[in-house]
Design a protein around this nucleic acid. Structure first.
Lengths: 210, 210
DNA sequence: ACAGCCATGTAACTTGTTACATGATTTT
DNA sequence: AAAATCATGTAACAAGTTACATGGCTGT
């Protein structure tokens, strides 16, 4: 959701051809996340389909310039003005994974946590070792690159903090032991009773079929 | 990339039918991120296509149980054992957006930053106000839910920290003023000259075609 | 001639996501 | 009867990503 919008924002500055867009994007976001060339042409076609850009004729060099439309310009402005909202619950792969792992009986969540922590720490070290680019210090590219790098560092630090918290929490719940009784109640169709206290289980714990 | 794997990990505990999987998943990750039912059936079909699960016959209740295969079991184990690796550069939408915004001439990055900061702060406040679920404290569900919630809080805090850093950095680079000269050099095809010092610009700064 | 980059494009595929259709069952 | 829930499924789409095909130009 940011490639599309980023390309649009760059195109809002003036027509570009595909390879140029790649260059501009990479320059702005640093050498991380090298943007695949093919993706640019895909994205441009999708943008054209949505009426946000228009494709021009090839010039004498064979360069195909793309021009933003009024709708595209509005969309770019909208994107820049509106804050990025994380969904009510952003899908954090790591959190989901640990939440699932911590509630599976045969799984040793503590070990998973430790090995994840090692990997995350290593990643953070790498990020910290990553040099600022050899560009002219103070250049806009340098600024942009620093922002992206800082963002990654902050995220990695937060991940480590969270992992430590999680480890402490897990220590309090030594053994999940939450066997897969799954839905403790027998699955029933239809509208469930509201007032009745679910009639108590007593019955079969879902008897996983062989 | 976590729905698919999570469902597989749950199925590794024993056969389930679709609705049951949704229940299990939601129970483990908290009420955030309610999993759309349709997605489960899609994912199951894709898992079957990949030979990781097998669909069973409907039982007397009309429940279609899905059973994990040996390959699926191996895949689930692999997922649980391997740490989640953020790509060399994870696509942080917010970072990319700010990096792009900070290098666009007509754009007031400081304003964008401030409004983003407000939104992020508000989100963090909401997260902090989010109560732990009314479940039995100490239950595995409670643990899982807390983990997810903590993760979101940590991420939100990191985001704010980063935004503050970014604001400070932007203050040092008061006005990007990086006009869209785009590729300062005239785009040329073929292998670029290595030794020549790019022949100096002098010429037209890409002369954006009208 | 050959390597290698510039440049455009096509096709396929993955995961996530939503909208919709269908029907059974059960409470109100 | 109506409403709500359980349950299964289909179809389509969005965004990202990769692999591949094609050709031009240029330096060695």
């Amino acid at each position: 959701m940011s490639v599309r919008q980023s390309l649009l924002a760059i195109l809002d500055q003036g027509p570009c051809y595909g390879y140029q867009l790649r260059h501009e994007f990479d320059r702005r976001t640093g050498s991380t996340w090298p943007l695949n060339v093919g993706q640019i042409y895909n994205t441009l076609e999708r943008l054209e389909r949505d009426g946000l850009v228009q494709r021009g004729e090839a010039d004498e060099h064979g360069h195909v310039y793309w021009r933003i439309t009024a709708a595209g310009s509005a969309e770019a402005a909208r994107w820049l003005a509106a804050p990025v909202l994380r969904a009510p619950a952003t899908r954090e792969e790591l959190a989901v994974k640990l939440a699932v792992a911590a509630t599976l009986p045969g799984v040793d969540a503590a070990t998973i946590l430790r090995s994840q922590r090692d990997a995350s720490q290593q990643r953070l070290d790498e990020l910290r070792r990553t040099p600022s680019p050899g560009l002219a210090a103070g250049s806009p590219e340098d600024l942009a690159w620093s922002l992206v790098l800082d963002s990654l560092v902050c995220a990695a630090e937060a991940e480590l903090r969270w992992l430590d918290q999680a480890e402490a929490r897990l220590a309090q719940h030594p053994h999940p032991e939450m066997a897969l009784e799954l839905t403790t109640e027998r699955p029933k169709r239809g509208r469930p009773a509201k007032t009745l206290p679910s009639a108590v289980a007593g019955g079969d714990p879902v008897a996983v079929p062989a």
